[in-house]
């Protein structure tokens, strides 16, 4: 017996697909704002307003604009312009590993400045 999708069903299926797409994209991509606490712990200052330059494409932007992938064992921050990896942060029980080779520079404000 064939099944004909009604308008209501089609609408519902479309909503469900939309929700799934939202949830999947949402679960994968965040902003570096989501790891602002961890970055502050690491650098000792508020980092989301600090500019960094992407070593891959040269884009300069506040670190808060970086896309953050937080579901892996560590945090990966990617350039919002070219998606290149700017920074990786992995915490082990006795150390924090920071791989910042994707940042050409980070412009840290001087204390009191």
């Amino acid at each position: 017996m064939s099944h004909h999708e009604t308008d209501a069903e089609r609408r519902m299926n479309s909503d469900m697909a939309d929700d799934m797409a939202d949830d999947m994209a949402g679960s994968l991509t965040l902003d570096a704002n989501a790891v602002a606490g961890r970055m502050r712990e690491l650098f000792g200052i508020e980092m989301t307003a600090v500019p960094s330059a992407c070593a891959h494409c040269g884009n300069v932007a506040e670190m808060g604009t970086l896309n953050a992938f937080t579901r892996g064992p560590g945090v990966v921050l990617r350039c919002s312009a070219c998606s290149g990896v700017v920074m990786r942060i992995v915490e082990t029980p006795d150390a924090t590993l920071l791989d910042a080779r994707g940042a050409a520079y980070i412009r840290l404000p001087r204390t009191g400045a």
């Binding site: 949830d23 949402g26 679960s27 994968l28 965040l30 989501a34």
Partner: peptide
């Protein structure tokens, strides 16, 4: 324009 994305990690 400033954006903040969130997902279920929150």
């Amino acid at each position: 324009v400033r954006t903040e994305r969130f997902g279920p990690t929150g």
